[in-house]
Design a protein around this nucleic acid. Structure first.
Lengths: 134, 134
DNA sequence: ATGTATGCAAAACATTTGCACCTGG
DNA sequence: CCAGGTGCAAATGTTTTGCATACAT
């Protein structure tokens, strides 16, 4: 029984071919941040027959199950990445579209402080930096 | 000569009815953050005949001219707000959806620092905090 | 077997664009 | 007058959905 199968069962999803293939792909791809289209094309190239609609459905299920995170970067489409369990933010190269992950505890702390000064308990945040290579 | 006309001329845009109306609306609306659809509906309700395509074109021109800022919050559509000249980020109340603006120079500085450590020149960023009232 | 998942095509959105007509300077 | 702006409808790109078929348990 593979790791993927166990992960799927753990979150209450039936073990089906598309789900296993997509999970494997996200796990093994050198590019951690993929759009639904990216996933779809990668599977086709690997000779797997999966419908684009299924890719969307599965990724959404994975998101709800906490297996992946969905990010709405600029550009009109969402990107997905396996939830590593370690929180991080993203920096997007405006030239190549490359996504770099980073974590800065100082920024995290300041966000919490800002929220509290405004009278809120911070429950989440989205931080994306855009820049060009220097 | 109204303030709106002057602003349009200043950025090199012809003074046309749709542009003036949209600028007035953004200036006077109690809700500073509006989608293209919001603007379109508000104008219709005010008895103004403007095409949705024109709203999009005008808002895009305003953005390029620096009159408004476009934000891609979660939810699949962009929201626009008049550029007050003072940069700020947003905190969204997860309970009421209310949007609060804030500015924190320390965070701004850290973002720049992070980008540079990653080898990029920071050209933009998107920071949205989510929280519930305490 | 049987309820769920899938694939396909069509629908649903938000946004953009082509084009004939209208308008501001 | 005439370059540029507008309205409409059609095109676009992304994501969702309806439905008949295929699959997991």
């Amino acid at each position: 029984m593979t790791t993927e199968n166990q992960e799927l069962r753990k979150v209450g999803l039936k073990v089906t071919l598309p789900r296993v293939k997509i999970l494997q792909l996200l796990d093994s791809s050198p590019e951690r941040h993929m759009s639904a289209e990216d996933v779809y094309k990668a599977l086709l190239e690997a000779g797997e027959e999966v419908g684009l609609a299924t890719v969307y459905r599965v990724l959404t299920q994975f998101e709800q199950a906490g297996l992946v995170e969905r990010h709405n970067f600029d550009g009109g489409h969402s990107v997905f990445e396996l939830d590593s369990g370690e929180h991080h933010d993203h920096m997007v190269c405006t030239k190549t579209g490359k996504v770099v992950e980073f974590h800065n505890q100082e920024i995290e702390n300041l966000q919490k402080k800002v929220a509290e000064e405004l009278g809120y308990e911070l429950t989440g945040h989205s931080l994306v930096l855009y820049g060009k290579p220097k």
